[in-house]
């Protein structure tokens, strides 16, 4: 059985024109099956993204992609809650799936097919079973999960499980905006400082070590997740869906590489070498899948912790 590649939602605050260009190219050139769209990090960015979404969705569909609308990862205010309900209502059109990234969305989507995103804590069989009973038809697992847990879940799952294999990992979300804070501003008057950093903003320790990255209200890994070497092992464990998270690089080239890896048309070491040149200086990591600290980089040995 062949692999399905999914492109996750753009997590960064890219301008609307850039999003249109980005998705036009994805629609025409990227060998990706499913594309997730929607602003999931900050409701303050939504007014820039939402107006171009219909055009993006239409463009991707014309390119033969399955489009999924991803819901917000953190809902705090009544306004955000209302936005979520509206978003779900908007997706009443046939074939438009929604990805729930918050339990409020899970409640609204219960009883109809939907996707569970990586921001929902699926750590075990019991949770997976409950969500599938509610209508989940694909579940993207949280990046923190070790390979042993992924394998245990894959063994019992009646729906496809998806694993994040590329991109800066989302590690935390807050009601606070750290981009604003880093500039001495509050969230309400943030001046959209996050828009200056299309790949997130680097956070260093006082000793100058590259440590984390901030993306508005989201805190991310400084490293770029790269599970290219783990894909054969993951496929052996029964995982067929792989998710890539957009970064400020040639994502068509990244997706094409992962397609060749999944189809065993390229040696993983050679793939990693090519990926390194696409990652624009970001260090890779794969620690979580080895049951280790997420930022570690270990030799690909799926299923065996070192």
């Amino acid at each position: 059985m062949s692999a399905t590649l999914t492109l996750g939602p753009v997590l960064f605050h890219w301008p609307a024109e850039r999003l249109l260009d980005f998705y036009a190219r994805i629609a025409d050139e990227a060998p990706v099956d499913i594309v997730h769209v929607g602003e999931i990090v900050c409701s303050k960015r939504a007014p820039f993204v939402d107006p171009v979404l219909p055009e993006i969705i239409e463009r991707l569909r014309r390119g033969g992609k399955t489009v999924v609308l991803s819901s917000r990862a953190l809902v705090m205010t009544e306004r955000e809650s209302r936005m979520m309900t509206e978003q779900i209502a908007m997706a009443e059109t046939p074939d438009m799936l929604i990805e729930a990234n918050d339990l409020g969305a899970v409640r609204s989507l219960a009883g109809r097919p939907h996707v569970i995103g990586p921001f929902i804590n699926v750590y075990n069989e019991g949770t997976l079973d409950y969500l599938v009973r509610q209508g989940a038809m694909r579940v993207c697992l949280p990046p923190e999960l070790p390979g042993t847990a992924i394998a245990a879940l894959a063994k019992v799952s009646s729906v496809p499980l998806e694993v994040l294999v590329f991109g800066r990992m989302p590690l935390a979300i807050s009601a606070r905006c750290f981009h604003a804070r880093a500039h001495g501003l509050h969230k309400d008057s943030c001046r959209y400082m996050c828009g200056n950093d299309p790949d997130g903003r680097s956070v260093k320790t006082l000793d100058g070590e590259a440590f984390l990255a901030i993306n508005g209200t989201q805190t991310m890994s400084h490293t770029c997740l790269n599970l290219s070497g783990e894909i054969p092992g993951l496929m052996e464990a029964g995982i067929r869906h792989f998710r890539l998270s957009p970064q400020d690089t040639d994502m068509v080239a990244v997706i094409s590489l992962f397609r060749r890896i999944a189809e065993q048309q390229i040696d993983p070491a050679e793939a990693s070498r090519q990926l390194a040149s696409l990652a624009k200086g970001l260090r890779f990591s794969n620690g979580f899948i080895h049951g280790r600290e997420g930022r570690a980089i270990l030799q690909a040995r799926f299923g065996h912790t070192q």
Binding site: P142, A172, G287, G291, E293, G294
Partner: peptide
Amino acid sequence: RCSLSSYVTG
């Protein structure tokens, strides 16, 4: 919903 400790210490 925070993996910061996990990312740095496992």
